[in-house]
Computed example of a mutant assay.
Amino acid sequence: MTDRELLLNLYITQALLLFIAIVIGIWQYDHFSSFLAIWQWDVFELFVIGGISGILVVIIDLFLMKILPKDWYDDGGINERIFQYRSTFHLFILCLLISLTEEILFRGVLQAHFGLFWASLIFALVHLRYLSKLFLLVSVMILSFFLGILFWWTHNLCVTIVTHFLIDFLLALNIKRQTKQNQNIRGDDGGTSGGSA
């Protein structure tokens, strides 16, 4: 599959998840106003709770990437192929789309009506490429429970969207930065590969 086809699959998957969220949401929510009630523009919750939570997850993830074997984080190169050559603006749009779609479905619809456990389990199962890697599977489950706890605590979908967005966007920027560093290293030393920072 080419990188272009991979990106197209990502967009199609997000559209499908959003469609599923709309169908289940129409079935489960009595009134649209009930769904709107979980969208709260609370600056403290968004930037302090959501922002700090997202940044902490990224710091922990980057630290673990430094100390754990590289193959524990290997998803078959999918994340690199999706993120490494995109413009910063395109990364912003992609990560915003992913965080909006997944949080609407998993927290705003599934968790709100079926509970934290089922929403987190389905969230992990949807990330198919992680199912064959125990560490990645456990990581995505922990992340899903963490986002679910944030939603349970704040009752604010905007908080989990901000957290999810920051995690995806900052890690995507890291992939882009590492790719650029590796290209510079290969260019400087005549083509031998070097490690990422």
Score class of each variant (00 low, 15 high):
1 M>T: 04
3 D>H: 03
5 E>Y: 11
9 N>H: 07
10 L>Q: 15
13 T>E: 08
14 Q>K: 14
17 L>A: 10
18 L>W: 05
20 I>P: 00
21 A>M: 03
23 V>M: 01
34 S>F: 07
35 F>N: 01
36 L>C: 06
36 L>I: 04
40 Q>M: 06
40 Q>T: 08
45 E>I: 06
47 F>I: 14
48 V>M: 08
51 G>E: 13
51 G>N: 08
55 I>K: 07
56 L>T: 12
60 I>P: 03
60 I>F: 13
61 D>V: 12
61 D>R: 11
66 K>A: 05
69 P>D: 06
75 D>G: 05
79 N>H: 11
80 E>N: 07
83 F>R: 06
83 F>L: 12
85 Y>E: 10
86 R>S: 08
89 F>K: 14
90 H>Q: 15
96 L>R: 09
98 I>Y: 02
100 L>G: 06
100 L>A: 09
106 F>N: 00
108 G>F: 06
108 G>E: 04
109 V>S: 00
111 Q>K: 03
113 H>M: 00
115 G>A: 10
120 S>K: 11
124 A>F: 02
125 L>I: 12
129 R>P: 02
139 S>T: 14
140 V>K: 00
140 V>A: 02
152 W>N: 06
152 W>T: 10
156 N>L: 05
158 C>S: 09
158 C>F: 12
161 I>S: 12
162 V>T: 14
162 V>F: 09
163 T>E: 11
165 F>Q: 05
167 I>R: 04
167 I>T: 06
181 Q>G: 06
187 G>Q: 13
187 G>E: 14
189 D>W: 15
191 G>C: 10
